[in-house]
């Protein structure tokens, strides 16, 4: 059944590929353009990168973005992994209820999640800022961790835990020396996913932050609304590189695991 790619398919694929990548490529190329205007090429320059790194607002936002991403990923990995284990061993009704609730932030529109959290923080009289931003990120990250860990739990041999107990391990030791290592690929994927989601988020952050605390996404939005700034191009290039690296790691990991299984 396998045929060689027909020329038509090849051209079509190339066109779609260009459509998907040309805008990103243009951004990256123009991040090295010495001239501020987009029509003209003023020669190669790193000055927008220099300006980017000397822009205090952006650097502050970068720190906020990264720290929120790291902390929310760590917290949601802990809560999410525990939740996945708890849900997995729960009775059917509890399982359905908790899974349903954890699906809400993934199904719901970001804008609805964002304003619902905003209303909550106001209701609780919390000042919008770093803490509310962090709580929001944890909220939308936990479901992704559960989503990544759950399949690993299902793949787990249902006797693996009993085998450890049988060999003399206490239940707690069996949990940490067998269950956690066995599901660790899911935990790592969940952590990377949570980290990426957190960096990528704009809409929820937009509604749940305040007091001058801002993330990169929010900075980009504010700048883009005012018009085009070449620093954003430089930022795009960096972020693209980071995201691509992270995803490559995730993909190589999962394909390695799969190959191991196939043998």
């Amino acid at each position: 059944m396998k045929k060689k790619l027909s020329p038509l398919s090849l051209i079509y694929s190339l066109l779609i590929f260009v459509f998907l990548y040309a805008p990103i490529a243009v951004l990256i190329i123009y991040s090295f353009n010495a001239s501020k205007s987009r029509g003209t090429w003023g020669g190669f320059s790193l000055k927008w990168y220099a300006e980017l790194f000397s822009n205090k607002d952006i650097m502050q936002a970068l720190i906020t973005t990264l720290s929120i991403a790291v902390i929310s990923a760590v917290v949601s990995v802990v809560i999410g992994t525990a939740a996945a284990v708890g849900i997995y061993y729960s009775r059917r009704r509890t399982k359905a209820l908790l899974t349903g609730i954890s699906n809400i932030p993934m199904i719901n529109a970001d804008i609805v999640t964002g304003i619902s959290l905003l209303l909550l923080f106001i209701f609780l009289k919390l000042d919008l800022g770093y803490v509310t931003l962090l709580l929001s990120h944890i909220t939308f990250n936990i479901p992704y961790v559960i989503l990544s860990v759950m399949p690993k739990l299902r793949q787990l041999d249902k006797n693996a835990f009993e085998a450890a107990i049988d060999l003399g391990a206490t239940p707690l030791r069996a949990f940490f020396s067998v269950i956690i290592p066995e599901i660790s690929p899911g935990i790592v994927t969940g952590a990377i996913l949570a980290f990426t989601m957190s960096i990528d988020d704009f809409v929820i952050s937009f509604f749940t932050t305040g007091g001058g605390v801002s993330t990169l996404s929010i900075e980009i939005y504010t700048m883009a609304k005012r018009g085009i700034k070449p620093e954003i191009n430089a930022l795009s290039a960096i972020m693209f590189l980071v995201v691509m690296t992270l995803l490559l790691i995730v993909n190589i990991r999962s394909s390695k695991v799969e190959k191991k299984k196939e043998r």
């Binding site: 041999d157 006797n159 693996a160 009993e162 085998a163 290592p181 066995e182 660790s184």
Partner: peptide, 11 residues
């Protein structure tokens, strides 16, 4: 115990 599907620790 030797379990039905072995229950070896894959890690």
């Amino acid at each position: 115990t030797v379990f039905q599907k072995y229950a070896l620790f894959t890690h």
